[in-house]
Every structure is written in structure tokens, then in C-alpha cells.
């Protein structure tokens, strides 16, 4: 039974306030990412749900649309199907990742920590991004094999990265809002899809461009749009997250 009298276990504020603030921000963000990854590594609930769903969508598209092999390899079809998979599997992941925080009141536990709350947002978003990218990089080779299209195009990979960042940036914020509600499973897509539409549109256009070998001049505006969207939404989330989580 020892609680040491006197000593506080919290570190003294050291260095310039700004430097220690940044250090604290990164430490908290890293802790949140580490926590999400190690919990997922153990349960694999989130990744397996996303993957099974993704694979089912690939198969269903094939049978439901009954495409002949040539049409199946059309860049527009490929880009469309891929982003449908990513968007819906992503929603599944986002919902699950916030449900974990609600489970035993953990979100309150996070909010009690003496860190800038945007560190929590960025930690959650980064974890979600890692999960989404993992699913995408498993889906791509499988899709390539099944439909005999080469998806290992650096441009396409860049678009997938940029699109996923934008999707997760908005998705993490809205999932945090939705988790307070009873109907969170349907609330998230209803909130998320309209807001994230520009990202999906730009991502599909840019992906199609890279797949059919369009000129860079045609693709560049879409890439720029994606980058702008990523920056704007990370900034918005950074500013409003505190208000979203407090009742």
C-alpha cells in the first residue's frame, strides 16, 4: 500500500512551453495509435470485418453485373468498383473503431487526459488510416488476380493514399459525432457520404485517369482537389473536435 507522499508522478513542464507542448501532443497521439493497433492486433475484429466485406463486394459485382472480361477491365469500372469497396469497408471500420471507445466509456477516459484534444483526433484518424490502407493493399492484389488488371501503378497508389486520408479525416470526426447517438450505424453513412462526395468523385476520376494512361494535365486538377480537401478537412477537424466531443 504505497502511494508516495510528496512526489507527483507528472513530469515538470520542461523546456520552452511550445516545445513541451508539441512533445506532449506527439506522445499522446502516439499512445492512441499504439493502443488501437495493439488492441486490433489481438482481436482482429475490425480488419477481418472490413476484409470479408471487401471480398464479398468484389464477387458480388462480378456476378451481379455479369460483365464480359473486356468491360470488366475498363478503367471506369475498375476505379468505380474499387472506391465503392473502400468507401463502404471504410465506414465499417470507422464505426467499429468508435464503438470501441464507447464500450466501457473509454472516450471519457481519453477526454480526461491533459492533452490537446486534437491529439486524440489525430491519433484516432491515423489508426483508422492504417487500417484502411491495410485493407486496400490486400484488396488490390486480389482484384488484380481475379480480374487480370494491373493495379500496381504508382499514380493509382498515390490517389488511393490521398483519397483515404481525406475520407478518414472527415470520417473520424463524423464517427465521433455519430457515436453519441443511438442510431450510430446508419447515422454515420448519412452524415459522411454527402460531405465526402468530392473526395470520392476526385479519387474516382484520378484513378480512372491513371488506369487508362491519361495525360497528367487531365489528372492533375483532381489530384490537387484531393490534396486541398485533405488539408482543409484536417484543419477543420483540428478546430472543431473539442466542441464535438463535449456535451
Amino acid at each position: 500500500m504505497t502511494i508516495e507522499s510528496e512526489s507527483s508522478y507528472l513530469p515538470e513542464e520542461q523546456g520552452t512551453p511550445a516545445a513541451s507542448k508539441v512533445a506532449g501532443f506527439l506522445r499522446a497521439m502516439g499512445a492512441v495509435v499504439w493502443k488501437d493497433l495493439s488492441a486490433e492486433l489481438r482481436s482482429r475484429e475490425l480488419l477481418s470485418a472490413m476484409l470479408i466485406f471487401a471480398l464479398l463486394v468484389i464477387l458480388i459485382f462480378n456476378f451481379a453485373l455479369d460483365l464480359d472480361p473486356a468491360t470488366r477491365r475498363e478503367p471506369t469500372i475498375t476505379a468505380g468498383v474499387l472506391w465503392v469497396i473502400f468507401v463502404f469497408a471504410g465506414t465499417l471500420g470507422l464505426n467499429r473503431s468508435m464503438a470501441i471507445e464507447k464500450d466501457r466509456g473509454c472516450l471519457d477516459g481519453l477526454l480526461l487526459a491533459p492533452v490537446d484534444r486534437s491529439a486524440i483526433y489525430f491519433g484516432k484518424a491515423l489508426g483508422n488510416l492504417v487500417f484502411m490502407l491495410m485493407v486496400e493493399f490486400i484488396v488490390l492484389p486480389i482484384y488484380s488476380l481475379l480480374y487480370n488488371v494491373n493495379l500496381f501503378n504508382p499514380g493509382l497508389l498515390l490517389v488511393i493514399l490521398l483519397g483515404s486520408i481525406g475520407y478518414v479525416a472527415v470520417g473520424t470526426l463524423l464517427a465521433t459525432m455519430a457515436v453519441q447517438a443511438r442510431t450510430r450505424d446508419i447515422l454515420l453513412p448519412i452524415l459522411l457520404f454527402p460531405v465526402v462526395l468530392p473526395v470520392i468523385l476526385a479519387a474516382v476520376k484520378a484513378s480512372t485517369g491513371f488506369l487508362d494512361g491519361s495525360e497528367m494535365d487531365v489528372i492533375r486538377p483532381w489530384i490537387n482537389l484531393l490534396i486541398a480537401y485533405d488539408i482543409i478537412f484536417s484543419a477543420v477537424a483540428f478546430m472543431v473536435f473539442d466542441y464535438v466531443v463535449e456535451e
Binding site: 502516439g30 499512445a31 499504439w34 470501441i100 466501457r104 466509456g105 487526459a113 491533459p114
Partner: peptide, 23 residues
């Protein structure tokens, strides 16, 4: 509510919160 993560051990839960507080 306990504010704990079910998929982490007791030790990992405390280590996580310790990092959040900079203990």
C-alpha cells in the same frame, strides 16, 4: 463506467493512460 479497453490487458491499459498523462 470503468473507462478501460477490453482488448488490452490491465498492464497495457495503465501504460496507455500513463503515456496520455506523461507519467
Amino acid at each position: 463506467q470503468p473507462l478501460l479497453y477490453g482488448d488490452l490487458t490491465a498492464e497495457e491499459n495503465l501504460r496507455f493512460y500513463g503515456r496520455m498523462y506523461g507519467v
